[in-house]
Design a binder for these strands. Structure first.
Length: 241
DNA sequence: TCATTAAATTGTT
DNA sequence: AACAATTTAATGA
């Protein structure tokens, strides 16, 4: 996988463009704003295409945007002081991230890398601050987002401790289908078995085996280039027999 | 629109 | 890790 990264905020800016109307509909929090607020936010919104392997943001970089995913798939990793990857989280369409660091005006604490060609959206920090100061709906969205993400990170730590590969795949899928954090996913998640392997830390073969085990229990349906969830609760509760 | 070909993804060993 | 089978995407008549 290539090690491209954005050399600076200006590089990101140069490659970005204004979103189309269809792309705007993929931004879940716009609907929580008043028409006036939404107009301001939409005017500031930029989108850019991230290539596979490309870093959207890196640890330590100054924050210039609050970012979200419209289409594609990102991998979020958190590194310890020693540079050892600690937790991985998949980031499907509809997910927005970095609000914690944007709020505090601190450098990014995560690496965000595109697993495949992805369309990333962002608003500038001043606009983010403006919405926080002004919009009740936006604050509600952010508060719920922070709360849900905290729960997700706790779940991710538990998943890392699990030994049974089938359970790990089941729980990881369940967190990728989180309806509040990732409203853009729907019931069909576009992810290849290879990509899922990267996220869960398993070989593609083992992921394939786990997926058809889960399919055998009517929890999911394996499709070409994606997974359809039939029973989200069942995935969360899944235990090997 | 259809047929052909290449590329991506899956299923199996 | 390798291979065959399947699905999708792209191309051009």
């Amino acid at each position: 996988m290539s090690e491209l990264h954005l050399s600076s905020a200006s590089a990101l800016l140069a490659r970005s463009r204004q979103p189309t109307a269809e792309e705007l509909s993929g931004v879940p929090w716009l609907a929580t704003l008043t028409p006036e607020e939404a107009a301001v936010a939409a005017a500031d919104l930029r989108v850019l295409q991230a290539e596979p392997g490309e870093y959207v943001c890196r640890v330590g970089r100054p924050v210039t945007y609050w970012l979200g995913l419209i289409d594609g798939l990102l991998k979020m990793s958190n590194e310890s002081d020693l540079g050892m990857p600690v937790t991985f989280t998949g980031l499907p369409p509809g997910g927005w991230f970095g609000e914690g660091t944007v709020l505090k005006h601190e450098p990014y604490r995560y690496n965000i890398q595109a697993l495949r060609r992805s369309l990333v959206a962002g608003i500038t920090v001043p606009t983010f601050d403006w919405l926080i100061e002004r919009s009740i709906g936006f604050n509600r969205f952010i508060m719920r987002q922070l709360n849900e993400r905290l729960g997700q990170f706790i779940a991710a730590r538990e998943i890392d401790r699990l030994s049974d590969p089938d359970v790990r795949v089941a729980r990881s899928l369940a967190s990728l289908f989180h309806p509040i954090l990732y409203p853009g996913v729907g019931d069909l998640l576009r992810i290849t078995q290879q990509e899922l392997g990267y996220l869960v830390g398993l070989s593609r073969q083992r992921v394939n085996q786990a997926l058809r085990s889960l399919q055998g229990r009517e929890l999911i349906r394996v499709e070409y280039g994606g997974v359809r969830v039939l029973d989200l609760e069942g995935l969360r509760r899944f235990r090997p027999m």
